[in-house]
Amino acid sequence: MHKMDVPLPKARVSEVLGLLEILDDEGGHVDLYRLGRTLGHDIDELISTIETAQLFGLVDVDNGDVVFTEVGKQFTDQDMEERKRYISESLSKLPYMVELLTALAESEEHSVDMEFLERIIDGEYSEREIKYFVRNILDWARFAELIWVDSDEQTIHLETEEEEEQEENENNSQQDYQQEQ
């Protein structure tokens, strides 16, 4: 089994959103090496960002160019609320997220240890790679408002549906996101 079989996010939210911004500015398609130049020719960042955007069906690689997909174009034009809804939907379909969300729903306090997620994605990965994937998955799942994380306790919690709380959290993460940009 090869690692490509399970699509794990290799980049963070802000990186992918940045890539979409550039793509939008360039009119929907950009030459690979020009994109590379923007990123200082760092092969790691380039690959991981494009690959993650592909994972969510937002871009395609075509003949040395990176191009928007239909969905990707739409996504870029939407507001943050709708973007979050889209990511939430596609993230929830990924096998490890299904497993995580099920476990969260079934657990009494709607929470699991961080190690639980590490165990799910444990494959032929090294410690460092696992840590890095966990970081990115949490980044996306928090963005999608599926979960929240208690860093002191190292636990993952299901985002509750209560109106008030959700609204507050939404505002927070929106602010976070804007700060990152």
């Binding site: 030459d31 090496y33 590379g36 690959i47 690689v61 040395g64």
Partner: peptide, 18 residues
């Protein structure tokens, strides 16, 4: 630039499903 583009394409084509 042409060679650079070739290197990019080679790396990405092996990694990314298009």
């Amino acid at each position: 630039e042409e060679i650079l583009d070739k290197v990019y394409s080679m790396i990405l084509s092996s990694r990314l499903k298009s």
